[in-house]
């Protein structure tokens, strides 16, 4: 494992910690899209079905369990915690699941490497992860007074994707037979989706102003 991959994973982990801190600490999930969180849970479930059959390393197994556990907890808090669920912006979080899930499913069926249930679901998870942030970005646009934790959450998540691209570039030049067009394409698409957000994030940071995305 190279330093970019490790840093990327740590950013991912940190983004989840920041989100959980916000949700449990201030008992509010204001500005957080439940749809994006549920899509991430679906991404992790469909991707990590091989958790007990395909052992790579203790690190990988532990991280998979952590991602499954924390994303379940986040969805649970937002849906069922009697205080936290009151702070969810349900009326604003209107992005349609089907708009993201259906194309991902069709593409997975059309492009899967082999046609086994595990492989098709894994491919589906790669496509879905690329677009799962979209409900969150739309909600962010509609949210007035985005708090720091929410802004930092999305920033950390975007950084994780950016670092994974550096990881792939590094692996491309250091490993033989490291050719993963599907993963690379989806990863680049996913990172491009964040570009607009990054622009306004840095702008607000530079001007020392509160983050606001133009509608």
């Amino acid at each position: 494992m190279n330093v970019f991959r490790l840093a990327g994973d740590m950013m991912h982990l940190l983004s989840i910690v920041v989100l959980l801190l916000k949700i449990t600490g201030i008992k509010s999930c204001r500005g957080i899209s439940l749809k994006t969180q549920e899509l991430y849970l679906l991404v992790f479930i469909t991707r990590y079905l091989d958790i007990f059959t395909n052992f790579v390393s203790l690190y990988n197994t532990v991280m998979k369990l952590v991602f499954l556990g924390t994303s379940s907890a986040i969805v649970y808090y937002m849906r069922y915690d009697r205080i936290i669920k009151l702070t969810y912006d349900k009326e604003q979080d209107t992005f349609k699941y089907l708009l993201l899930v259906a194309p991902s499913a069709v593409l997975a069926l059309a492009t899967s490497h082999v046609y086994t249930v595990l492989e098709v679901l894994w491919t589906f998870s790669i496509y879905l992860e690329a677009v799962a942030i979209m409900p969150q970005l739309v909600l962010l646009q509609r949210t007035q007074n985005i708090d720091n934790l929410t802004g930092n959450y999305v920033f950390l998540l975007g950084s994780y994707r950016g670092l994974y691209i550096l990881n792939w570039i590094y692996r491309f030049f250091t490993e033989k037979h490291y050719r993963q067009w599907l993963v690379w394409t989806c990863g680049v698409v996913q990172t491009i989706i964040y570009c607009d957000f990054f622009y306004y994030y840095f702008l607000s940071w530079q001007n020392n102003e509160k983050l606001a995305l133009p509608a």
Binding site: D9, H12, S57, N60, M63, H113, V114, N167, Y178, V183
Partner: peptide, 10 residues
């Protein structure tokens, strides 16, 4: 068959 995409990332 062609090599399966690497599943060593998260």
């Amino acid at each position: 068959s062609a090599p399966s995409p690497a599943k060593d990332e998260l």
